[in-house]
Write a protein that binds this DNA or RNA. Structure first.
Length: 1168
DNA sequence: CTCTCCCTT
């Protein structure tokens, strides 16, 4: 909600702020922590000058009136979104502060100014390549021998503007105290309003206009007509080449491309109202992008064979049979879209395969389509291949390409074939399989994933994760090394796949242009998009994406065994209970064959696994409990509420239409026992199976967090005389294929992380899956033979409530990483050809965050810092932390910290230990020896857990981020990492990843800043006490927008019914509202957030809790099913406590706060 | 007093 500044409220605020300051001073009086800069003294002075403080506010109030009118008008016409409004007002106010502060600063601090440089904005491209400009100001110990000379030079270069009257400034002279973060005076226009500094080229445009007003809706500049205009104006590539000092070469290539790009210039010069100067400036900029692309290409020119290409057909092996001529005429969609190369020479690479492989290949439907597919690829730059599961497209299409000469170094298309997969395992396993199938050419196939690669100079077919290819694009935009790219699993619509497709649509055009101009040097790039569903209209009917028209679609039928779907008559709300009953009945009645049970989470899985093992004889003797509690399905509650009464008559069944199968569904679903027995007989006769009564169960859980070796157990054959029952989450839907599954039980739901766009609170919700997902789950029963899928929902619910397809990931995930990456590559954001364009508020949210981090400037351009952040394979927040750590000379420790923060669920949360007393199944249950043994075990576990946590917290000083850092440091000293993780309740998989990430980050930092740290060493000592203080502050730099203030220290403290007794009952207020306005009106308590019990701070006495906490995220539990009247509290996951001076220190170096906010500002925002 | 599905550079 935008603060309204009526004079009365303003006065009230000033008073409130003074109260606040008093409170804060108390809070920070005990701040014995090391400060990054010795600012504390100054801040104390600042406090003494409270009166002057008020003066500033008043002057600001006057100006604010003027400014406010303009802002309001602007807002009325241009902005609907509340958040934009808040941001703009904020920024406007800051700019005004800046003006004041600068003026006062100019009065007497000019010497101080000489070593200051802007933290963001195009000017900083003048700075040398050594270190980010933020170094200077945050550094505790100034680095000697650096910067002085150069800084003076730069100060001379750009003398500060002194045009504004200094009368006001004099009267607020000491306000300069707040301005310590000011890098450089802003320019001011005639009316005294600040002007943002822009790059020289753009100056004409921006000159003399106030920042906020000039910038309209910042995104509108990026429409697709101006793609190139926007692309070139991104500063990433430009800054890179400036830094590398190759300016002469750059000019050369720029002018070269100037000459050769006449036609494309015509397209972009449609705006006739532009004057000539603007036009030529625009042309210059427009060509810069192409120039950059040309440079990229030229850099790799060594790889492209020059003019002695041989097009001759190589000697053919004995068993080579020429391809049969095309018999059918091409369907219309296969007709040539791009320039037909009628003279195309035949070229092929011979592959010798074993007869077994040959035969197996011939079974695959896609092989029958080879001719059509390859013909379409030759005639079109972009092709979409649809092939259902089992069509063999993933393994065969890359081989078709290879045999047609793609990737052959001496052929007409020498570049590699790149195949992307959304998951690492898939990339590795597919490369192995295709390598095997290529027999004699096995050595040409390789894979590359984040921490591992098998590529060599010989590699012709490269399987990789989509993230790897995205990284490669950011280094070589036109993908010089490739002649064809295959995007697999495009139907999954992961963010990376979507971005890749958008990028590649442009790269393909660019390469086609280049090839036209110099066919000998440049070859077109072929793009093959592969999907397993027919949801491809987002790609094919997307004019923005494929400007040449829709790409041709090629179909290959799947080859799967038939799976019969059995819908439930009723859809039970308590699906776990229902699942237990169905699996029990199914196990008793169904013939041999593995079962795969889809549930939504780990808790459900462990719960159900336990009950199944108790109910049946388990093959896992170790886990058989002696005090078996028999709960038959009949005894369990039948009072579950029906969501919906499925229409009995039109029960859905698949094509198969077998009535006996239908009756089994009824049997399985019927609550009455009698039917069940009748059905059983019928079923058994049909399947000729009689021994199911004897069958034991072999129950295995399967979810992502499970240690790998336990996951692997699902691939082993179950013990003789037992049935494999796998209880799985969504991992089993796509990532892992379990052999021998004949029956699938699908609860029809999945757990999904939801992220509230306005408040940032995350929740986990269980919701319906899509029809496509349901069919995918069912399909898991048909891998090795015909199968059955039992669905715990009625066909009516399926038809009515299930979406056709899941929403693309880009619509429901934070986008700061995507936006930063696009911007740093110089790609437009709004104009980017997304297959499905993401929500604008979501993009704006990402943009705001990047602004807070200093990664983009106010006009939406990437800053030098932003470009540096994009070089790290990290979320921008973590990259910001890393860069801050380098600047603070604490590189190795910060790398460990970032690695720890990046790993999910590093420490096993207490609630996953199963420490809770199990609920008594029966009130009359008498405590058995077994119960006692279990209770003892729980108590032992709890003690061990607390001990482990205490170890990790030993020097952490209530900083949870240090706790994580300690885990990584300690792990590095262990020879047996897995055992250590076991003892310390750490996630071994995550710890291993964190270790690898440390290594990766070390080499990247060293490449970028050779002096920052020495070579990677596994062992890293835990941080010293002063390092802990510094590290915690460095950590806060990545989360500067996520500050919580203890609510009782706020100007208007909450009226609590009673004093909080424990730390987790103490209310905090967040910088940005953590709840919607409506919700906080209905229930004022909802505006507060509380500590998460897993935090180190949760064990602190309430009175000793810190005033300020930086947190990583807010979370709210799903509403309790038992008690729906009270909604759960919103809880924050703290990273570290911070003192007020520390906040000021860190915030001063972000664009958001760099201009020095008057004291109390943050608090004001919280309240306002 | 928590109550994390699945991916990735």
């Amino acid at each position: 909600m935008p603060p309204k500044f009526t004079p009365r409220q303003r006065k009230h605020k000033v008073i409130a702020r003074q109260n606040q300051n008093a409170a804060l001073d108390n809070a920070s009086a005990d701040a014995n922590a090391t400060e990054i800069i010795p600012e504390e003294q100054r801040l104390r002075n600042e406090k003494k000058a409270a009166l002057k403080n008020e003066l500033v506010a008043e002057i600001k109030g006057k100006m604010s009136g003027k400014k406010k009118k303009r802002l309001d008008k602007y807002v009325e016409t241009k902005l609907k979104k509340e958040e934009n409004l808040v941001l703009l007002k904020k920024l406007a106010e800051q700019k005004m502060d800046t003006t004041l502060l600068r003026r006062s600063k100019n009065m007497g601090e000019s010497t101080q100014k000489k070593r200051e440089r802007p933290v963001e904005g195009p000017e900083e491209f003048h700075s040398e390549s050594g270190s980010g400009s933020e170094d200077e100001t945050v550094r505790e110990r100034p680095r000697p021998g650096k910067g002085a000379k150069k800084a003076v030079a730069s100060a001379e270069e750009k003398p500060a503007a002194h045009t504004a009257s200094s009368a006001e400034a004099k009267s607020v002279g000491s306000a300069g105290l707040f301005g310590t973060g000011l890098k450089r005076p802003l320019e001011v226009d005639e009316s005294g309003k600040p002007v943002i500094q822009v790059r020289k080229r753009r100056k004409a445009k921006a000159k003399g206009k106030p920042v906020v007003i000039e910038e309209e809706v910042p995104w509108e500049g990026f429409n697709s007509d101006e793609d190139e205009d926007e692309e070139e104006s991104g500063s990433g590539p430009g800054s890179a080449s400036e830094e590398s000092g190759g300016s002469e070469e750059e000019d050369e290539s720029a002018s070269a491309s100037d000459d050769s790009e006449e036609d494309s210039e015509e397209e972009s010069s449609s705006d006739t109202s532009e004057d000539e100067n603007d036009k030529s400036a625009r042309k210059e900029r427009s060509n810069a992008f192409k120039a950059w692309a040309t440079t990229q290409r030229n850099e790799a020119i060594g790889f492209v064979p020059t003019n002695n290409l041989t097009y001759a057909i190589p000697p053919q092996p004995k068993n080579f049979t020429p391809r049969a001529p095309e018999s059918d005429p091409l369907p219309p969609e296969l007709e040539t879209k791009t320039a037909t190369d009628a003279t195309r020479k035949a070229y092929s690479v011979a592959v010798e395969r074993t007869p077994e492989i040959q035969e197996a290949r011939l079974q695959l439907p896609v092989v029958a389509e080879e001719q059509k597919i390859m013909e379409a690829i030759h005639n079109n730059d972009v092709v979409v291949v649809w092939g259902a599961t089992g069509s063999g497209k993933t393994t065969q299409v890359p081989q078709f390409l290879y045999e047609a000469g793609y990737g052959a170094p001496d052929g007409p298309t020498p570049g590699m074939i790149g195949v992307t997969q959304p998951r690492r395992v898939a990339a590795v396993s597919m490369s192995k399989r295709v390598g095997d199938e290529l027999g004699s050419e096995k050595a040409k196939v390789a894979y590359q994933i984040r921490f591992d690669t098998s590529t060599s100079a010989k590699t012709a077919v490269k399987f990789m994760t989509d993230g790897v290819l995205l990284r490669e694009i950011s280094q070589d935009f036109i993908l010089t090394k490739y002649s064809a790219i295959v995007i697999d699993e495009a139907h999954e619509r992961s963010v990376n796949t979507d971005i890749l497709i958008g990028m590649l649509s442009r790269i393909v055009d660019l390469r086609a242009d280049l090839a036209k101009k110099d066919p000998k040097k440049n070859k077109p790039l072929k793009l093959i998009i592969m999907s397993a569903t027919l949801r491809i209209s987002d790609f094919t009917d997307n004019k923005r994406l494929f400007r040449q028209g829709p790409p041709p679609l090629l179909k290959a039928e799947g080859r799967q065994y038939e799976v019969t779907n059995h819908f439930a008559r009723k859809t039970q709300r308590d699906y776990v209970e229902e699942m237990f009953r169905k699996v029990c009945r199914g196990h008793r009645k169904l013939p041999r064959g593995g079962m795969l049970v889809f549930l939504t989470g780990q808790n459900e899985i462990t719960h159900l696994a336990k009950r199944l093992r108790q109910t049946f004889t388990s093959s896992q003797s170790k886990e058989v409990t002696t005090g078996k509690v028999q709960i038959s399905p009949e005894q369990t509650s039948l009072e579950t509420e029906d969501i919906e009464l499925g229409a009995n008559k039109d029960d859905y069944h698949d094509d198969d239409g077998s009535d006996s199968d239908d009756s089994i569904i009824t049997g399985l679903d019927n609550d009455e026992d009698k039917d069940e027995f009748e059905d059983e007989g019928g079923f058994d006769i049909e399947e000729g199976e009689t021994e199911s009564e004897e069958l034991k169960v072999h129950v295995l859980p399967l979810y992502s967090q499970l240690p790998t070796n336990q996951q692997m157990r699902v691939f082993d054959a179950p013990p003789e005389g037992s049935r494999l029952i796998v209880l799985a989450t969504n991992v089993a839907e796509t990532s892992l294929t379990i052999p021998g599954i004949r029956y699938v039980f699908d609860c029809g739901r999945a757990k999904e992380k939801k992220y509230d766009l306005t408040t940032g609170v995350q929740t986990f919700e269980v919701g319906w899956i899509s029809k496509a997902s349901a069919n995918q789950r069912a399909g898991r029963a048909g891998r090795t033979g015909p199968g059955h899928c039992y669905r715990l929902y009625s066909s009516a619910v399926f038809e009515r409530d299930f979406d056709e397809y899941a929403e693309p990931e880009i619509m429901r995930t934070p986008l700061e990483a995507v936006v930063l990456q696009l911007k740093s590559m110089g790609a437009p954001v709004l104009g980017f050809p997304f297959p499905t364009p993401p929500d604008r508020t979501n993009l704006q949210k990402a943009e705001n965050l990047l602004l807070y981090l200093g990664a983009v400037s106010l006009d939406g351009k990437v800053t030098k810092l932003g470009h540096e952040l994009s070089l790290y394979p990290l979320n921008p927040r973590f990259a910001r932390i890393l860069v801050m750590g380098v600047a603070q000379n604490l590189t190795a420790q910060t790398i460990a910290l970032v690695a720890a923060l990046s790993a999910p669920e590093l420490i096993t949360p207490e609630n996953k230990l199963g420490l809770r007393e199990p609920p008594l199944a029966d009130p009359s249950h008498i405590r058995t020896e077994q119960d006692n043994v279990e209770a003892e075990e729980r108590s032992r576990l709890r003690k061990a857990y607390n001990k482990a946590l205490a170890k990790l917290a030993v020097n952490a000083k209530h900083s949870d981020c240090i706790k994580l850092n300690n885990a990584v440091c300690a792990y590095a000293y262990e020879s047996d990492g897995d055992a250590f993780c076991e003892d310390m309740f750490l996630n071994a998989k995550a710890m291993r990843e964190a270790g690898q990430l440390r290594q990766q980050l070390t080499s990247i930092v060293r490449a970028h800043r050779p002096t920052a740290l020495s070579a990677y060493q596994t062992k890293l000592p835990a941080p010293s006490s002063s390092e802990v203080n510094l590290l915690a502050q460095i950590c806060a730099a990545g989360f500067i927008d996520q500050i919580a203030l203890r609510a009782d220290l706020a100007p208007i403290p909450p009226e609590l019914p009673r004093k909080p007794k424990t730390a987790i009952d103490v209310p905090y207020l967040t910088l940005f509202s953590s709840t919607s306005q409506r919700a906080s009106k209905e229930d004022p308590a909802r505006q507060y957030v509380y500590l998460h019990p897993s935090s180190l701070l949760a064990r602190t006495p309430p009175a000793k809790l810190p005033a300020y906490i930086i947190y990583s995220h807010l979370q709210r539990a799903a509403p309790s099913t038992v008690d729906a009247t009270t909604s759960p509290k919103t809880r924050m996951h703290p990273l570290t406590p911070v003192t007020r001076p520390q906040i000021v220190n860190i915030a001063l170096n972000t664009p958001l706060l760099q201009v020095g906010k008057p004291k109390g500002k943050i608090v004001e925002r919280v309240v306002g």
